[in-house]
């Protein structure tokens, strides 16, 4: 009886794993299938011959390396800027009791609740006279703002995990508050900072709506913009599209490994974000 239960449990886990991985597996499978086998072996689980031709083409003869680079720049800049701002603000929320604190948290929470898509039009209008449309800087500014609230909650939860005694001890030992923050609190929050960078990077790497709206030229396109325009133009080059998709997957998966340990904390802090 117990053995059957255990077996059913393992089987259920396997079904979940299969469901989670199958789409990604298919992506990889098509990306290594030679063009001549694409349709004839359409639903075979693995092609009879494999090729890296699609990857070679995408890397050498397409704009995807450029898109990749743009996305990397935008995502890294967003991650570091948002984490820095959120670090300070999260510290204030965690450590100070000040009038207006509830208002600030409330404000941060509200920004997580309203539909961001309704900002598409006004942000475009406001950024274009500043020359920040069709610009990676503009994209970074927008992404930083979108990710700061969530990163604040995340950083706050990391700061909350560090006993107040430590900085009080440092202040008695002769440090100023900022000195205690820099010398005692920050080093202890490093893993949390890394996790926050990872979360924000993942979010920025995935963002599509505002990139579509704000970016108009190929040179400034981020990965999703580039991939979607490629899809609409060359919608039969499945091998190449999926090879490009695999490329988009790589940094996201790397950062996923980085933040895996902090998923629970991240998801609770940004329960509304995802």
């Amino acid at each position: 009886m117990r053995a059957i239960g255990t077996l059913a449990h393992r089987l259920a886990i396997l079904v979940y794993i299969a469901f989670a991985l199958f789409p990604l597996f298919w992506l990889v499978k098509v990306s290594v299938t030679p063009n001549d086998l694409l349709y004839s072996e359409g639903i075979r689980l693995w092609p009879s011959r494999t090729t890296f031709e699609h990857f070679r083409f995408v890397l050498a003869h397409s704009d995807f390396p450029l898109f990749f680079r743009n996305s990397l720049i935008v995502s890294l800049a967003t991650a570091f800027a948002a984490t820095t701002l959120a670090g300070f603000a999260g510290y204030a929320l965690s450590r100070f009791a000040f009038r207006g604190k509830l208002t600030v948290s409330g404000l941060l929470l509200v920004t997580q609740m309203f539909p961001l898509v309704m900002l598409v039009a006004p942000i475009f209008k406001l950024l274009s006279p500043l020359g920040l449309t069709n610009s990676l800087t503009g994209l970074v500014v927008v992404y930083v703002a979108f990710n700061v609230p969530f990163a604040c909650f995340l950083m706050q939860s990391f700061f909350d995990g560090i006993p107040r005694d430590l900085e009080e001890a440092a202040m008695i030992d002769g440090a100023s508050r900022f000195g205690a923050f820099r010398q005692i609190i920050l080093p202890l929050t490093l893993p949390g900072i890394a996790a926050t960078v990872g979360f924000v990077f993942t979010a920025a790497w995935s963002e599509m709506i505002f990139a579509l709206m704000l970016i108009s030229s190929n040179e400034k396109a981020t990965f999703p913009v580039g991939l979607l325009s490629f899809v609409s133009k060359f919608s039969v080059d499945f091998g190449q599209m999926m090879a490009a998709g695999v490329l988009a997957l790589i940094p996201a998966c790397l950062f996923f490994l980085l933040i895996q340990r902090y998923l629970v904390q991240g998801l609770t802090a940004g329960a509304v974000k995802g």
Partner: peptide
Amino acid sequence: ALVFLPWAVPTFLTGLNWAWLFNPTI
């Protein structure tokens, strides 16, 4: 880690990927 992996997949890629899975030619 494996079952949580989909969460890390960028949403545009998730969309494309499933669109391809639903596409009878591919």
